[in-house]
Design a binder for these strands. Structure first.
Length: 699
DNA sequence: CTTTGCACA
């Protein structure tokens, strides 16, 4: 394999300092970024103006010399678009090899890829391509730089466990610590032990760099003289690249606030009164909070009079209909000031231009998982310093800004956690563990994770997979069910349901149901038209429950010719239904590959319900005998649960139900519920129910 | 009487 950067031939001009932990740090050099600009296209000049440009040589030097390079770069440094191009220019894609760059989100993959293709002056999908679910814009044999989501790269490992096509893999936004990023980091470390020539670039925030470096520091055996000539150093290097953001002045409250909603509203009004023009972004916790704050603000404005009517108040959260989201991105008309009240979506996933002021409540909703009850819940919790910094940074994108924190400086300095808990340690692990199993990782408890989940959570996941017949007594994937489930990109319970549908002759219906279960909600939540909305829902409601209701919606959508007008009239989310169709198509292809034919059971909804039970028997619940308020108890753990108000079975309260998921806020709510007969449970999973205390209702 | 938001050949 040829090397393209010749160590020693051109020393980087930046200052090199040994890190006390064995890494290497380049300190920012003072040399000017702009070299002679004559004859360059404007895109080329733009590339050179990015902060990352003056580190070009340093980056190539480090990647050549180190197995892993950690790039600490703030937003706007240009690292995501530039580093892959530097690598390509230095020859890392020669000889048919690939430079891979992962992103945690599909949208980021698409935008970064098209930007890079534009800069390189090539057609997207040729030298520069991308792969996300449902969309492969690459050309094997031609593509040199490939952008992809973390999840897609993990899937690629199932075909090619050592990712032999790649010479370098850059993991972008690794500090977000999503489950798939963490899994990917663990797997890449493992691959690097077998392929020391593989180079990794981990892009991270300042706070996480040190722990990333420790994680990737591989003590290679039998190398008494350090790294050999051919192989890079196993010690990671850390490189810092400054961002392009403007300074943000931080303000704290002097006394802790008792009501952060009211405090947020007051702060917005104060900013509008005292500060020069510029939009305001307020971070709150959820839809509830946001709607309440919108109402509060509007009331105050009515009282305060004319000057305050210049405020344009907009809510922002993922569940918002498309049209409302477009308002957020529309430029503010002259003399008006936009106030966006947002969830965490504006922290990482969306960027709003024109924001100069940020109001940070200090809270967000966070997932948390209890492996004993096997319940995931959402709780309002204090954010980390890393989050607080990210939020503040949103004020400095167009010019110097201000951030108003609704907590004291003392709290920030002494009590706030510096990093959040990685999602891996707050989640149910079934999907994660089955993927590792499919990659041949037998010793799950011994897997080297960037942040190890609790043994309880791992054991719980193994138990669930065992009860579904996906793992055997030796915790190996069963043949064929276990391997097939691993190949289906869904929650294993739903995958199992799909495979079981074959036994009940209803694969057609179950594929539709599984696809609906994979989208957040197909309904459009519209406030103020409660009655019409409920009527629309009733048109599709099935007595059996939500799953059968989905079948009715699917039929209606098809009969309408997949019309968006039809969706609008029925309060259905057109985008979500199109996604259902996409997912169904993918699932059908996979299932056909297993030799399972598409078969409909026509009107036999008993068959459909039995197939659902085959996957979700562990979620069986029984209505409490004397319950006045619709209280159910789970069969497995006697947990108190209620039917979610969005379910067609809300207030119907059948005696026995199965739920697809629990949402836990003030109570545990069952979402996507179907009525069942108790005898079907013992029929479907005798091993699971035989040791339970006898229940008179079962006979 | 109601969830944060990403993602998976």
């Amino acid at each position: 394999m040829s090397r393209f950067w010749k160590p020693g031939s051109e020393k980087p001009s930046t200052l090199l300092v040994d890190d006390e932990e064995g890494g290497v740090v380049f300190l920012p050099s003072t040399s000017s970024a702009s070299s002679s600009g004559f004859g360059y296209a404007s895109l080329e000049r733009q590339r050179q103006r990015l902060p990352v440009y003056k580190y070009r040589k340093a980056i190539l030097y480090l990647v050549e010399r180190h197995g892993t390079t950690i790039v600490v770069g703030e937003t706007g440094s240009g690292k995501s678009t530039q580093i892959p191009q530097y690598l390509k220019e230095a020859g890392w894609a020669d000889g048919g090899r690939l430079i891979g760059c992962t992103q945690p989100r599909r949208l980021a993959v698409q935008t970064v890829a098209s930007r890079v293709a534009e800069e390189a002056g090539v057609k997207l999908g040729e030298e520069v391509g991308y792969t996300i679910r449902f969309e492969d814009q690459t050309n094997p044999g031609m593509t040199m730089i490939k952008f992809l989501t973390d999840g897609v790269l993990i899937r690629e490992m199932m075909e090619d466990p050592l990712l032999t096509k790649y010479s370098v893999i850059m993991v972008d936004e690794a500090h977000e610590r999503s489950i798939s990023t963490d899994m990917l980091l663990g797997l890449l470390k493992k691959i690097q032990r077998r392929r020391p020539e593989l180079r990794l670039i981990i892009s991270s925030a300042t706070i996480e760099a040190r722990s990333m470096s420790t994680f990737f520091n591989i003590r290679r055996k039998n190398s008494s003289l350090g790294s050999s000539d051919d192989l890079p150093s196993p010690e990671p290097a850390i490189l810092s690249v400054e961002g392009k953001g403007y300074t943000v002045e931080i303000h704290y409250v002097e006394e802790p606030v008792s009501d952060y909603l009211q405090a947020a509203v007051n702060t917005v009004l104060l900013i509008h009164e005292k500060e020069p023009p510029g939009d305001i972004l307020v971070f709150l916790t959820g839809q509830d909070d946001i709607d309440a704050a919108v109402k509060l603000l509007n009331e105050e404005i009515q009282h305060l009079g004319r000057h305050y009517l210049d405020l344009v108040i907009l809510p922002l959260y993922s569940g918002l209909p498309r049209g409302d989201q477009d308002l957020i991105f529309a430029p503010t008309s002259k003399g008006k000031r936009k106030v966006v009240l947002s969830t965490n979506i504006a922290e990482t996933s969306l960027t709003l231009e024109g924001v100069v002021y940020v109001v940070d409540s200090g809270f967000s909703k966070q997932k948390c998982y209890n492996p004993i009850s096997d319940i995931e819940s959402l709780v309002v919790a204090p954010i980390s310093k890393a989050s607080a910094r990210q939020r503040a940074g949103r004020a400095g994108r167009v010019r110097p800004g201000k951030c108003f924190r609704l907590y004291t400086e003392e709290y920030y300095l002494n009590e706030m956690q510096s990093e959040g808990i990685p999602e891996m340690q707050r989640s149910n692990l079934v999907s994660c563990i089955i993927q590792l199993k499919a990659l041949g990782i037998d010793n799950i408890l011994g897997f080297d994770w960037p942040a190890s989940p609790s043994p309880e959570a791992m054991i719980r996941a193994l138990e669930v997979l065992f009860s579904l017949g996906i793992l055997d007594e030796d915790a190996k994937l069963t043949v064929p069910v276990g391997f097939q489930v691993a190949e289906i990109p869904l929650d294993p319970m739903i995958s199992k349901m799909i495979l079981s549908a074959n036994d009940f002759g209803c694969s057609d219906e179950i594929l539709t149901i599984a696809s609906f279960l994979s989208v957040q909600s197909v309904w459009v939540s519209v406030r103020g038209v409660r009655k019409e909305f409920d009527e629309a829902k009733l048109r599709f409601a099935a007595a059996e429950g939500d799953h059968v209701t989905f079948l009715n919606i699917y039929k209606g959508f098809h009969q309408s010719g997949k019309s968006s007008q039809w969706c609008y009239k029925n309060f259905l989310n057109y985008q979500a239904l199109k996604k259902v169709i996409d997912i169904r198509g993918q699932l059908l292809r996979i299932v056909k590959g297993f030799g399972i034919p598409l078969k409909s059971c026509d009107r036999d909804m008993q068959a459909v319900r039995k197939a659902i039970i085959a996957g979700s028997f562990a979620n069986a619940c029984h209505l409490e005998e004397y319950s006045q308020n619709g209280m159910y108890k789970t069969i497995r753990t006697s947990q108190e649960v209620y039917i979610h108000p969005s379910s067609v079975l809300f207030r119907v309260n059948p005696k026995w139900v199965i739920y697809q998921s629990l949402v836990s806020t003030d109570k545990h709510y069952m979402r996507n519920v179907i009525a069942i007969e108790p005898s079907w449970l013992t029929e479907a999973a005798p091993h699971f129910f035989q040791f339970r205390t006898p229940n008179p209702d079962l006979h």
